[in-house]
Structures are given as structure tokens and as C-alpha cells.
């Protein structure tokens, strides 16, 4: 098992290098001269050229990229923000926990709502609950989350004045953003749980479980659910990653000082080092989350687990005792 994890982490390295190359290239071809951006429009052309030399902007693409990678790998230095002149790493670390909290809370809320809904829908297929739930789920998936945020603000902040529309100073400020991000996640989880349960419930071993004389509730929870939840784990993990993406727009709407808002603001302001560093950081986080999900999946499904641990013993046992 540990070999598998190590293997995956090793595989992550070239992918992340690739990501850094892709991001660096995008920043490189993006319009705008970084030196000009830092100095502003009033600076003279000479000053701009001087800064360009200083920043090494006139070197070749590969020289610049090489320098960048060296900095990242050896010093963890992602560059300096054009606007605040602080280290990009610091900027990211300041805001990272907020975004993470948002994403995690959204996924937790979504799971708490989505899984029971999916189970009930599956066991009461075609009932009123099922139809209603699935329509709502589809609406939830179809609603653009930035629009949902705005509507929630209109209803709960402007009209009802129950909840605040911006800022992040306490738990009450979390309610609307978490709902915004969590809605489509909950909808996706509900749909997937439903279809996974439906597939599992058709399997022969469920009939076996019933033929043993089990109560239906036991059949669903002990036999069906255990199998149905395995693919759902992957979905939940992916949604955590999506939550990071969803946070990007939501933070802007609710003025939450997180990583997402930082990214949006930086892109608009052409603050490229922050963008570069931010995307790389998010990519690393995303990859780690995916790895974690895969490992969890392997643990949950005994068929896969045995593929990765103690490969030797399985085969020999079979031959001897047949």
C-alpha cells in the first residue's frame, strides 16, 4: 500500500512540473508588460526598461522558466506580488485557510444533505419524493453559483436582512457562501448516490441478503450502502476540488478574503506572480486531494485493496486449497 502511495506521489511531480510550465507559458504570453504594471503609467520608458533588466524579463523563455522553477523548488519562493510587494507565498498562506474552510464546510453540508436524499430517492423510486428530489437536484446542478449567490444576497440580505452580504468576521458570515458553493455539490452527490444505490440494489448479492431473512432496512444499510458508497467517495473528493473552483467566484461575490478572491483580483490587475503561484498552489492541493481520494477508495473496496498489498500470498493460497 505504501509503495502505491509513494508511486503516486512520484507521478505527481512531473504532472506538477507540467502545470508550472503551462501556467508560466500562459503568463508569458499574456498581454501587458510586468515592469510597466509595477511602475504604473506615469513612469518613463527608461525606468521601465531598467526594471525589466533588473527583473530579468529580457532573458529567454527557458532562462526565465528555469529560474522560476529553481526558486520554487529550492526556496519555496513563488515570486513577489506586483502590487503589495509581499512574497506571493505569504499572500497565499494568509488566505489559504479561509478558502479551505469554505470548501470543506460546503462538502460536509453537501454530503449531509446529498447522501440521505439519494438513498431515500433510490429506495422509493418514482415516488413523489424521488421525482421532487431529482428535479431539485437538477436545478441545483444547473444554477450558476455566482447567480445563486446574488439571489441569496437579494433575498436574505437586502430584503429580509437576516444575513450579511459580505465580509468574513464570524460564523454567521459563512452561511450564505457555504450554501452557495454547497448547493450544486449536494445536488451532484444526491444524483450519484441515487444511481449508485439503484445499481447496487439490482445485484444478486442483495437478493441473497434478502433470502437470508434480513429486514429490508438491514439489507439497504449493511449490504447495499456499503457497496454503493464506494464510488461516492470519489465523487465527494472531486467535489472538494470543485469546491475550490466554486469558491473562486463565490468569494468575489461575498467579498471574502480568500484565495479565490485573490486569484480573481490578481488576474484583473495583471498581478502575474500571484496568479502563477496561486494556480500552482491550487494544482498541488487538488492533486493531493485526488491522491487522498484514490487511497481512500482503495481502502474501502477490498477487491482493490488486495491488489496493492501482499500480492504474493493470494495466488498461492488458491492453488493449494482447491
Amino acid at each position: 500500500m505504501y509503495r502505491y502511495i509513494l508511486n503516486r506521489i512520484l507521478m505527481m511531480v512531473p504532472v506538477l512540473l507540467g502545470v508550472s510550465l503551462v501556467v508560466f507559458s500562459m503568463v508569458y504570453i499574456a498581454p501587458g508588460d510586468p515592469a510597466r504594471i509595477i511602475l504604473g503609467d506615469t513612469a518613463s520608458e527608461e525606468e521601465v526598461q531598467e526594471l525589466r533588466e533588473e527583473m530579468g524579463l529580457n532573458d529567454s523563455f527557458f532562462e526565465q522558466y528555469g529560474r522560476h522553477i529553481k526558486n520554487v523548488v529550492t526556496k519555496g519562493d513563488l515570486g513577489t506580488s506586483y502590487i503589495t510587494q509581499r512574497s506571493v507565498t505569504t499572500e497565499i498562506m494568509d488566505r489559504w485557510p479561509t478558502t479551505m474552510m469554505l470548501a470543506v464546510m460546503s462538502v460536509i453540508l453537501a454530503t449531509l444533505i446529498g447522501i440521505p436524499t439519494g438513498i431515500i430517492s433510490a429506495t422509493r423510486q418514482y415516488s413523489v419524493f424521488d421525482n421532487l428530489a431529482m428535479i431539485l437536484a437538477l436545478v441545483g446542478v444547473s444554477m450558476p453559483n455566482f447567480w445563486q449567490g446574488l439571489i441569496l444576497i437579494i433575498v436574505f440580505s437586502v430584503n429580509l436582512a437576516w444575513l450579511p452580504a459580505s465580509g468574513f468576521y464570524g460564523p454567521i458570515y459563512w452561511i450564505l457562501p457555504v450554501i452557495t458553493i454547497g448547493t450544486s455539490t449536494a445536488a451532484t452527490i444526491a444524483r450519484m448516490t441515487r444511481s449508485s444505490m439503484l445499481e447496487v440494489v439490482r445485484q444478486d448479492y442483495i437478493t441473497t441478503a434478502r433470502a437470508k431473512g434480513n429486514k429490508e432496512r438491514v439489507v439497504i444499510i449493511n449490504h447495499a450502502l456499503k457497496n454503493a458508497l464506494i464510488p461516492i467517495i470519489t465523487v465527494i473528493g472531486l467535489q472538494l476540488g470543485r469546491g475550490l473552483g466554486g469558491a473562486i467566484l463565490t468569494e468575489s461575490i461575498f467579498s471574502i478574503p480568500g484565495l479565490g478572491k485573490l486569484m480573481v483580483d490578481s488576474i484583473k490587475a495583471r498581478n502575474y506572480p500571484v496568479v502563477q503561484g496561486g494556480v500552482l498552489f491550487i494544482a498541488i492541493a487538488f492533486s493531493l486531494i485526488n491522491l487522498f481520494v484514490d487511497v481512500l477508495y482503495a481502502y474501502a473496496d477490498p477487491r482493490i485493496k488486495s491488489q496493492y498489498s501482499r500480492k504474493r500470498s493470494k495466488k498461492s493460497k488458491e492453488v493449494c486449497h482447491e
Binding site: 444478486d204 448479492y205 477487491r303
Partner: peptide, 12 residues
Amino acid sequence: FQDPMTALNPVI
């Protein structure tokens, strides 16, 4: 049952 390959719960 007929098909032993699918008659048992794979995770128990």
C-alpha cells in the same frame, strides 16, 4: 442461486 460469482457481497 445460479451465479456464484455475483451471489456474495464483495465487501463483507
